[in-house]
Computed example of a mutant assay.
Amino acid sequence: MELLLIFFKMEIHGKQLEIISCIWIVIGVISFFLLMFLLLTKQYHTKLKKITNHSIEIGIKLKTEYTQKLLCFQEKDRKRIAQELHDNVIGRFHLMRMNLQENNLHLLKNNLQTSMKIVRELSHNFTPLESNPGELSYLFEDYLAQIQQQVAVNYCVLQSPKKQLLSNEVKLNIFRIFQELINNILKHSKATEVHVQFRHSETSTALVVRDNGCGFNPNNTHNGIGLKNIIFRSSIIKGKFKFKTMLGKYTMFIIFIPQLNEHGHG
Rank of each mutant, 00 (worst) to 15 (best):
Ser204Met: 14
Ser204Arg: 07
Thr205Gln: 07
Ala206Glu: 14
Ala206Asn: 05
Leu207Thr: 09
Leu207Lys: 08
Val208Met: 14
Val208Pro: 05
Val208Asp: 10
Val208Glu: 11
Val209Tyr: 10
Val209Ala: 09
Val209Pro: 10
Arg210Trp: 01
Arg210Met: 08
Asp211Pro: 07
Asn212Glu: 08
Asn212Ser: 11
Asn212Asp: 15
Gly213Ser: 15
Gly213Leu: 10
Gly213Gln: 13
Cys214Val: 14
Cys214Gly: 15
Phe216Glu: 01
Asn217Asp: 00
Pro218Phe: 02
Pro218Arg: 01
Asn219Thr: 05
Asn219Trp: 04
Asn220Asp: 10
Asn220Gly: 03
Asn220Cys: 06
Asn220Arg: 07
Thr221Ile: 14
His222Ala: 12
His222Trp: 12
Asn223Trp: 13
Asn223Asp: 13
Gly224Ala: 12
Gly224Arg: 07
Leu227Asn: 09
Ile231Ser: 07
Ile231Cys: 08
Phe232Ser: 05
Phe232His: 11
Ser235Asn: 11
Ser235Phe: 04
Ile236Leu: 15
Ile236Gly: 10
Ile236Met: 12
Ile237Arg: 02
Ile237Asn: 01
Lys238Phe: 06
Gly239Pro: 14
Phe241Thr: 06
Phe241Asn: 03
Lys242Thr: 14
Lys242Glu: 10
Lys242Phe: 15
Phe243Cys: 05
Lys244Val: 05
Lys244Ile: 02
Thr245Tyr: 08
Met246Phe: 00
Met246Ser: 03
Met246Ala: 06
Leu247Ser: 00
Gly248Leu: 09
Gly248Ser: 10
Lys249Phe: 04
Lys249Leu: 08
Tyr250Trp: 06
Tyr250Ala: 07
Thr251Trp: 01
Thr251Asp: 00
Thr251Tyr: 00
Phe253Met: 04
Phe253Lys: 03
Ile255Met: 06
Phe256Trp: 15
Ile257Leu: 13
Ile257Thr: 08
Pro258Met: 14
Gln259Arg: 13
Gln259Asn: 15
Gln259Leu: 10
Gln259Trp: 12
